[in-house]
Amino acid sequence: MSTAVTSPPSRLALYLDLIRWDRPAGWLLLLWPTLSALWIAADGFPGWHLVAVFVLGTILMRSAGCAVNDVADREFDRHVERTAHRPVTRGALPVPEALAVGAALALVAFALVLSTNPPTVLLSFAALAIAIAYPYAKRVVSMPQAVLGVAFSFGIPMAFAAVLGGSDRSLAAVADAVPPHAWALLLSNLFWVLAYDTEYAMVDRDDDLKIGIQTSAITLGRHDVAAVMAFYAIHLVSWAAIGLSLGLGAWFLAGAAVAAAQVPWHWTLIRARRRDGCFKAFRLNHWIGFALFAGTALDLALR
């Protein structure tokens, strides 16, 4: 009886696995609040150039972040059921090659940013620094999800800068281009990230306890489910309040209501703390962000 021989994956297949190409939930979670901010800053459709820059830039930077994260966590990931087969962790992709892929993607994203304006370019350096810092945060802080929250929300001030910024290259120009409500939206979005990334951390809690890393799921302990619900509530209430203060109306509130209607379903998925339920809740979070964006875009288009 002959035994079929499985050929090793191609380099392209390994690169696509490295950047989680078949798992778009990650970049969608980044994309929807960024696009919401872009529409709010422009008071409507911001133009195809900025839409293309932020959509492609989001995909590229999330992909680059995956490469950095896998290199940083390769020793941890081999002890975690969900991540043990990632290409860097299992040795299919050398560390220098994975970093080169990440750097190439980040450079393409930076080239896109260069087509905007100096305040956005300056903010992109801060965004990059936070993205690189996140994988190491779990070694020193008890809730590294808060660091991820800043990283995954930084497209919001960048969107405002891209719309409102001018040609001045000073830090004062950045402050002028990013109004206070943009930072308020970032803070609000941070609580959404805390909600969905705590769900994500709940998937790996048993493995993370064994290897000694820190996550919000471990820090919150038996209060994890209640905390996730509270994070969702803070995000949705504050996001709605900010939108109303900016003059958004019925369609915006309808989008927020559709987003809020999904939260009880998330509770049913995570309340038993099973891996499959928590992971499903995380993966489907982008529909909350989509509902908020759709309400925002419709409200601005139909006013």
Results as ranks from 00 to 15, higher is better:
residue 78 R to Q: 11
residue 88 V to R: 02
residue 83 T to A: 02
residue 93 L to E: 00
residue 83 T to K: 00
residue 91 G to Y: 05
residue 82 R to K: 11
residue 81 E to Q: 14
residue 89 T to Q: 10
residue 82 R to P: 03
residue 66 C to T: 07
residue 61 M to D: 09
residue 68 V to L: 14
residue 66 C to A: 13
residue 78 R to I: 12
residue 90 R to E: 08
residue 66 C to Y: 06
residue 69 N to L: 04
residue 90 R to L: 07
residue 92 A to S: 15
residue 103 A to R: 07
residue 65 G to W: 12
residue 71 V to G: 14
residue 97 E to F: 11
residue 103 A to W: 11
residue 87 P to V: 06
residue 101 V to M: 08
residue 89 T to L: 13
residue 82 R to Y: 08
residue 73 D to K: 04
residue 96 P to S: 02
residue 100 A to M: 15
residue 75 E to F: 14
residue 71 V to K: 12
residue 60 L to W: 08
residue 101 V to C: 06
residue 87 P to M: 04
residue 68 V to C: 10
residue 68 V to H: 08
residue 94 P to T: 02
residue 85 H to A: 15
residue 84 A to P: 01
residue 63 S to N: 08
residue 76 F to N: 03
residue 75 E to A: 15
residue 78 R to S: 10
residue 74 R to A: 07
residue 100 A to Y: 08
residue 75 E to Y: 12
residue 98 A to P: 04
residue 83 T to L: 00
residue 86 R to Y: 07
residue 58 T to E: 10
residue 81 E to Y: 11
residue 89 T to C: 12
residue 84 A to T: 08
residue 86 R to I: 05
residue 65 G to Q: 13
residue 92 A to E: 14
residue 88 V to G: 01
residue 83 T to H: 00
residue 79 H to A: 12
residue 99 L to S: 02
residue 84 A to G: 03
residue 83 T to S: 04
residue 97 E to P: 09
residue 92 A to F: 13
residue 95 V to H: 08
residue 95 V to E: 11
residue 64 A to Q: 13
residue 58 T to Y: 11
residue 72 A to C: 13
residue 97 E to K: 09
residue 64 A to D: 13
residue 86 R to M: 09
residue 94 P to N: 04
residue 79 H to M: 11
residue 83 T to I: 04
residue 63 S to Q: 06
residue 82 R to H: 09
residue 100 A to F: 14
residue 74 R to K: 10
residue 93 L to S: 01
residue 70 D to A: 01
residue 57 G to A: 04
residue 83 T to W: 00
residue 91 G to N: 05
residue 71 V to F: 13
residue 67 A to R: 00
residue 100 A to S: 15
residue 94 P to E: 04
residue 83 T to M: 01
residue 102 G to C: 05
residue 101 V to N: 03
residue 67 A to P: 00
residue 72 A to Y: 08
residue 57 G to E: 03
residue 94 P to V: 02
residue 103 A to S: 15
residue 98 A to D: 02
residue 81 E to V: 11
